[in-house]
Structure formats: C-alpha cells, structure tokens
Amino acid sequence: MLPAVAALVVVTLLPIAYGFYLSLTSYNPVERGGPRFHGLDGYVAVLSSGQFWQAVLVTIQYAAGTLILTVPAALGLALLVNGRFPGVALFRSMLFLPRVVSLVAVSMIWLWLYSRDGLFNYVLDLVGLPPVSFLTDEDTALLSLILMRAWKALGGGMIIFLAGLQAIPKDLLEAAAVDGCGRWRQFRHVTLPLLVPITIYVVVVDVIYLAQSFSEIYILTSGGPLSSTTVVNMLIYKEAFENYRLGHASAMAFLLFCLIFALAYLNIRVLSRGGRR
C-alpha cells in the first residue's frame, strides 16, 4: 500500500511543486540551458499583459453566461421530473444523456447544428431571418459556445437538484399548504430557501469546471475569431505549446488557479447571503 501512496505523491504533488518552480523561471525548451530563475518577474509580466486580462474576462463571461442559462433550466427540469407520472424514469435518464457524452462528441454534433446548413440556420430561415455564421462571427461565437455548454451541463444539474428536492420533508410543504400558501408561495418560501446549499454546490462545482474549459473551444473556434473566445486555458496552451514559453505559461496556470479559487469563494459568499434573506 505504501508504494501506492508514493506513486500518488509522485504523480500529483511533485508536478505541482515543479510547476510552481517553473512559474518562477523563464524557460524555452528550444533554447539551450534549461530554466532560468527570475523570481516573480513572470507573474509581473503576465499581470501587466492586456492579453491575459482579456482572457480572464472571456473566461468569466463564459462561466457566468453558462451558469445563468443552465442553473434555472436545470432547476425547472428537476421540478418537472420530481413526481410520479407515466414515463418519468425514461425522461430522467434521457435528460441526463448530455452529461454522459464527452464534450468532444458534443462539439461534433453542435458543429453541424451551427453550420451554414445546420439546424439553427434552418430555424432562422423558417422565421424569415438571414443566416448567421455562429462560430466564425465575433459577435456570436462566445454566445454559441455558452449555449452548447449550458445544454451539456443541464442533465448533471438536474439530477443534483432532483436529489435536493427529494430531501425536502413533505411535512414542511404540507404545513405551508395548511397555512394557505398556494403552489407558487410554497415554492418561493419553502422549497427555494431549502435548495440554497445544493445550488451553491452546483454553481461552485460548475465554476471550477467551466473556468478550465478547453476542448470544445479548441475544436469549435480555437479561441477565435480575434481571440473573442480565448479563455485562460486556451491562452496557456498557446503560450506553452505554440510559443514554447513554458515559464510564462506556468505562471498563467497558477494565476488561473487563483482565479478559480476566487470565483468559487465569491459564489459561496454571494449565494449563502442570498439564502439568509
């Protein structure tokens, strides 16, 4: 068993430590001589580059946009399938399907949906609107990615909300009903406040994942057009494996870690304050 623990340390902890050392160096593997230590210079350079802050902004927009679409919709679906009626088990598993399928596979499907002859342009044509180049237009690319990612995140959110709904004691809703609360007021004053902890969980876990988005963006837009969809992870990839600035990229990776930590913390604070009101 101790060898297992040792392997764990070698594969998880050492790379992080080595990565932190690299972030304090300037290292281009194409040049000779290995990493050159330069302290916090790399961090200063990253923090003073407009490109980095632009990527931070895109990352926040991407995560926030996806959450704003997906969290209410997932809650709605959970309310819909929380009950006994014909077909409910089938509906639950079908709604969960996007969660089981990989992001790369999902991106392939949406590549067609967004294409010139795809479903979305067909629907636009039906209502008499001109076609849109969803993924190659600077104004729509990020929004198109957000819509896809929100769809992908629906099922997972729904299942967690469903578990939350089923944990609410029936007596509470009944007591509210006795006191004359209609369905809306039961939902607003009993169900919703009790769902706050689970909402925090859904949002924080999603933020951690969304802030690390890469594959769907690489496949559908590769960060373009005009870096309108270049999230921090995309920028790190390009710095490291296209420009070979490994020290610089490592510093960005640690700053992304800080960003994720800050976003998660902020969400916990804001949402738990909202729950107390």
Partner: peptide
C-alpha cells in the same frame, strides 16, 4: 488544482 497546472511539468517529465 486545475489540471493545466500539472500539464507543463508532466509534459517535461
């Protein structure tokens, strides 16, 4: 820790 932090060290290893 985001996976990308380990990405570059693991690549070098």
């Amino acid at each position: 820790v985001p996976a990308v932090v380990q990405l570059i060290p693991l690549f070098l290893v």
